[in-house]
Simulated assay, not measured.
Amino acid sequence: MDLELIWEKFITLLKVEHQVNTISKKTFTGIPFLYITALNLQQQQLNDLLIQAASQAMKGKQLTCDITFVRMKSQTFVYRIRFKVPQEKLFCCGNGCSNCIRLKN
């Protein structure tokens, strides 16, 4: 699964929102951070907006999203956002593995 497509859709959905002025994604030590400048938005409103956009971007995919507020400075909000792929097996490979998906109840 290409997470870059999910990121593109996520950022596009946020850019459509009229209350968001600028969005930039920066990666530090392998962790993506989103810098959002939004006028007349409270942190809780922006959290709700991020959750809604993430759920739309992940629709139909087996992903989870971790959204963490980091800091705010002069109307620029910084969030650590990660889209995570599940770590469990999703199919049977036919090798009789001890953690086979067929053996789950």
Score class of each variant (00 low, 15 high):
residue 25 K to M: 00
residue 80 R to S: 13
residue 12 T to R: 06
residue 8 E to P: 02
residue 69 F to W: 13
residue 64 T to K: 09
residue 2 D to S: 10
residue 61 K to N: 12
residue 73 K to R: 13
residue 46 L to W: 06
residue 50 L to S: 01
residue 26 K to M: 10
residue 90 L to S: 11
residue 11 I to Q: 01
residue 91 F to P: 02
residue 71 R to H: 02
residue 1 M to F: 13
residue 9 K to T: 09
residue 26 K to S: 11
residue 86 P to D: 04
residue 82 R to E: 15
residue 91 F to I: 13
residue 100 C to T: 06
residue 67 I to M: 05
residue 60 G to D: 05
residue 90 L to C: 09
residue 51 I to L: 13
residue 3 L to S: 04
residue 71 R to I: 02
residue 84 K to V: 14
residue 8 E to V: 07
residue 57 A to D: 03
residue 73 K to F: 14
residue 60 G to A: 08
residue 32 P to H: 03
residue 15 K to P: 09
residue 105 N to M: 08
residue 94 G to I: 07
residue 29 T to H: 14
residue 98 S to I: 15
residue 21 N to Q: 12
residue 50 L to P: 01
residue 81 I to T: 06
residue 41 L to D: 07
residue 40 N to M: 14
residue 99 N to C: 03
residue 57 A to G: 07
residue 45 Q to G: 08
residue 47 N to A: 02
residue 71 R to K: 11
residue 10 F to Y: 08
residue 97 C to N: 05
residue 5 L to R: 07
residue 52 Q to V: 08
residue 3 L to I: 13
residue 79 Y to H: 10
residue 98 S to M: 13
residue 18 H to T: 11
residue 20 V to D: 04
residue 92 C to W: 05
residue 55 S to P: 01
residue 19 Q to V: 12
residue 94 G to H: 04
residue 19 Q to E: 11
residue 68 T to H: 11
residue 40 N to D: 15
residue 68 T to D: 12
residue 98 S to A: 15
residue 17 E to R: 12
residue 82 R to A: 15
residue 11 I to T: 07
residue 75 Q to I: 11
residue 33 F to V: 00
residue 23 I to K: 02
residue 59 K to A: 12
residue 12 T to C: 01
residue 56 Q to P: 04
residue 20 V to L: 13
residue 78 V to C: 02
residue 97 C to I: 08
residue 17 E to S: 12
residue 16 V to Y: 12
residue 89 K to H: 11
residue 66 D to I: 03
residue 6 I to S: 02
residue 64 T to S: 14
residue 5 L to C: 04
residue 52 Q to P: 02
residue 76 T to I: 15
residue 49 L to E: 01
residue 51 I to A: 11
residue 75 Q to Y: 11
residue 39 L to P: 08
residue 94 G to R: 04
residue 34 L to D: 02
residue 21 N to I: 10
residue 12 T to P: 00
residue 45 Q to F: 05
residue 63 L to P: 03
residue 22 T to E: 15
residue 85 V to A: 10
residue 36 I to D: 00
residue 43 Q to V: 09
residue 74 S to G: 01
residue 53 A to F: 05
residue 26 K to A: 08
residue 39 L to C: 08
residue 5 L to H: 05
residue 43 Q to E: 14
residue 28 F to I: 15
residue 3 L to Q: 05
residue 74 S to P: 00
residue 96 G to Q: 10
residue 37 T to M: 14
residue 2 D to M: 04
residue 87 Q to T: 04
residue 15 K to I: 10
residue 68 T to K: 14
residue 64 T to R: 09
residue 38 A to I: 06
residue 7 W to M: 04
residue 46 L to E: 07
residue 47 N to G: 01
